[in-house]
C-alpha cells in the first residue's frame, strides 16, 4: 500500500513502477506469410481481399502494391472511410513515394488531383465511377481500406456501388478487419465483376489479446470469476429490492395502525 501512495510533484499519486524507456522496435524486415501471399496474388493481377486483425500489417501489403504500380508508371486510388484517415494516408504516402506523386481528394478539399496515386473518400471514388470513368483509364487498382464498412447502414452504399461500377479493367485490393463471411463477399465480387477474387485470411493477432474484467473495487477477474461476480451482484440487488419492499410494506403497516 505504502509504495502505491508514493507522492509526486504536486502530492498526487504516481505510477507504482516506471517502465523502462521504450525503444522503437525495428520494423519487421521479414514479411509474414500472409503478406507474401497477398502481394504475390496482387502482382499476378488478381483482385484480392485481405481479412486480418488490426495491427497485423495490412497497410504494408497496400504499400508494396503501390510501389509496384508507381514503378510501372500506372496509377492507383486508395480510399478510406474517414477524412482524418485520408489526411493521414496522404501524408504517409507523400513521405514514402514523394509528395509530387500523391494527391488527396475529399468532398471539401483537393490537392494535386493529377497525381498518379490518389487518396480519396469512398464517396468520391463512387462518383468518379459514375461520372468520369475515363479519368480512371490509367488507374490499375483501387484499394478499399476498412472494407467492412460495406455493412454500415448509412454509408455502405458507397462501397457497394464502387465495387459494382469500378471500371472493369481495375483490380481491387480490399482490406478488412476479421469478418466470418469474407469468402461470401469474395464470391459475390467475383460474380458481379466477372473476375477471379483471391481471399487471404490471417486470424492470428500480432499480439494476442487477453480479456479481463474489473470488479468495483478494482479486482481483476477472469471470465468465470466475472460471471460469478455479476451473478452475485444481481443477487444482492434483488435482495436489496426485496428488503426495501419489505421495509416499505412494514412502514405502511405501521402507518395503517
Amino acid at each position: 500500500m505504502a509504495n502505491k501512495k508514493e507522492t509526486g510533484v504536486r502530492g498526487k499519486r504516481r505510477p507504482r513502477r516506471r517502465r523502462s524507456k521504450f525503444v522503437l522496435p525495428a520494423a519487421p524486415l521479414q514479411l509474414d506469410p500472409f503478406q507474401e501471399e497477398a502481394i504475390a496474388a496482387l502482382l499476378d493481377g488478381y483482385t484480392v481481399l485481405v481479412a486480418a486483425p488490426t495491427g497485423t500489417g495490412k497497410t504494408l501489403i497496400a504499400e508494396k502494391l503501390l510501389e509496384h504500380i508507381l514503378a510501372g508508371g500506372k496509377g492507383a486510388v486508395y480510399t478510406s472511410p474517414i477524412k482524418a484517415l485520408s489526411n493521414q494516408k496522404y501524408r504517409d504516402f507523400g513521405q514514402l513515394f514523394g509528395p509530387e506523386r500523391v494527391g488527396l481528394i475529399t468532398g471539401d478539399l483537393s490537392i494535386n488531383e493529377r497525381a498518379p496515386l490518389l487518396v480519396m473518400t469512398t464517396e468520391i471514388f463512387r462518383n468518379w465511377c459514375f461520372a468520369s470513368p475515363g479519368e480512371l483509364e490509367h488507374t490499375s487498382h483501387v484499394i478499399f481500406d476498412e472494407m467492412h464498412y460495406l455493412d454500415d447502414p448509412e454509408r455502405g452504399t458507397a462501397w457497394e456501388e464502387s465495387i459494382i461500377f469500378a471500371p472493369p479493367h481495375m483490380k481491387i485490393l480490399g482490406l478488412s478487419a476479421t469478418v466470418p463471411n469474407i469468402q461470401e463477399i469474395a464470391s459475390w465480387m467475383a460474380e458481379v465483376r466477372g473476375d477471379v477474387v483471391k481471399v487471404i485470411e490471417e486470424r492470428c493477432r500480432a499480439v494476442p489479446l487477453e480479456i479481463s474484467w474489473i470488479a468495483p473495487g478494482g479486482d481483476i477477474l477472469d471470465e468465470e470469476e466475472a460471471r460469478m461476480e455479476i451473478a452475485e451482484r444481481q443477487e444482492i440487488r434483488r435482495w436489496r429490492r426485496h428488503y426495501w419492499n419489505d421495509m416499505m410494506a412494514a412502514g405502511r403497516e405501521e402507518f395503517d395502525f
Binding site: 521504450f22 500480432a206 499480439v207 494476442p208 489479446l209 487477453e210 480479456i211 479481463s212 474489473i214 468495483p216
Partner: peptide, 15 residues
C-alpha cells in the same frame, strides 16, 4: 498490445 513490447494486449472490461 504493441508489437515488439507487449507479450499480450490487455483488455479490461469494467463491471
Amino acid at each position: 498490445g504493441r508489437r515488439g513490447y507487449d507479450p499480450v494486449g490487455r483488455v479490461f472490461v469494467r463491471i
